[in-house]
């Protein structure tokens, strides 16, 4: 009984290897396959190796893919746990900051009503008020990062073109002296609608544009391009600004992370984290490419709804 079990355990991968090798030789599977970061010319390899050799190669590939999958699972589990810890931390922080902020706001309102207040004191109060507002925005964003879950998002057909026009209009209002190019697919047909949360997606592109404008100067170019390929809509937000150092790029989507070359520019480090989270909840992807001193492009991809007919 045990022998049969061991035998079948050994036979299954072997048979699978032969089957894969056979399919590769027939050209029924892709010509190239990925193994980790290596691309393998499967068609060439299998045609030269013969069936037994091919089976051996297929077996090695199978083992490799299995191990890769295991590593990916562990990585995902770790990542989820980290995310949960971070969320708890933000919830707590949000909570602890609310009372102090309320008291500061009340205190400012009271001081504005003291009878002899000099213009200098008035200016101080204005500044304190503005900074309290900044803190409140930070607290709000942190709460959103910790609370933003799929059920809170709307799922409705929305026009991506309109969302982008809105985000660009808001960015233009905030940076009136800057030019932003907006190019949305018009031909042969207009950009497809997507399914999602209109208001949250405006936040995403607004944040991306904010970054593009903040980390570039008036002479630089900022461009938004959008097109779809029938399955995905892709939006690029590109700038010719200061760029992100290579070492910082893997971390830019983390909460509160800020690049090593932007310390002189005010920012919360939450804009990209929020964008990432909202896009993730839309089951889309967000990627960033950057060269320091040349600029940055962020690409957001959103799945188009399946055609109804």
């Amino acid at each position: 009984m045990r022998r049969a079990l061991i035998l079948s355990l050994a036979l299954i991968p072997a048979l699978l290897s032969f089957a894969i090798a056979y399919l590769f030789q027939r050209g029924a599977i892709a010509d190239f396959v990925w193994s980790g970061t290596y691309q393998i010319d499967a068609a060439g390899l299998f045609s030269r190796a013969g069936l037994a050799g091919s089976a051996l190669i297929a077996f090695i590939l199978l083992t490799f893919w299995w191990a890769e999958g295991r590593a990916e699972d562990t990585f995902q589990a770790e990542r989820n746990m980290q995310e949960e810890t971070r969320r708890r931390f933000f919830r707590r922080l949000d909570h602890e900051l609310k009372n102090p902020l309320t008291i500061i706001k009340l205190g400012i309102a009271n001081m504005r009503h003291t009878p002899e207040i000099s213009s200098q004191q008035q200016a101080s109060l204005d500044r304190i008020g503005q900074q309290a507002g900044r803190l409140q925005k930070l607290v709000e964003d942190m709460r959103w990062l910790s609370e933003l879950e799929a059920p809170r998002l709307e799922q409705a057909p929305v026009s991506l073109a309109e969302i982008l026009a809105d985000a660009v209009a808001l960015a233009r209002a905030a940076y009136p002296d800057r030019a932003i190019d907006l190019a949305v697919q018009q031909a042969p047909w207009p950009l497809a609608d997507i399914s999602g949360d209109r208001d949250m997606l405006v936040v995403v592109f607004r944040n991306l544009l904010d970054n593009a404008l903040k980390y570039s100067t008036p002479g630089d170019k900022v461009a938004v391009r959008a097109a779809d390929d029938g399955q995905w809509a892709a939006v690029e937000v590109a700038d010719t600004g200061i760029g992100i150092p290579d070492a910082d790029q893997p971390s830019v989507f983390e909460e509160l992370y800020r690049g090593s070359n932007v310390q002189a520019i005010a920012g919360s480090g939450l804009g990209l984290a929020l964008a990432w989270r909202i896009i993730k909840l839309h089951k889309g992807s967000i990627r960033l490419r950057s060269r320091q001193g040349q600029g940055t492009v962020v690409t957001v991809r959103l799945k188009l709804p399946a055609p109804r007919d």
């Binding site: 925005k137 709000e140 959103w144 808001l170």
Partner: peptide, 12 residues
């Protein structure tokens, strides 16, 4: 309604 007074624009 949105629970996010600052990030979401009033146009929403």
């Amino acid at each position: 309604v949105w629970g996010w007074e600052h990030a979401v624009e009033t146009r929403a």
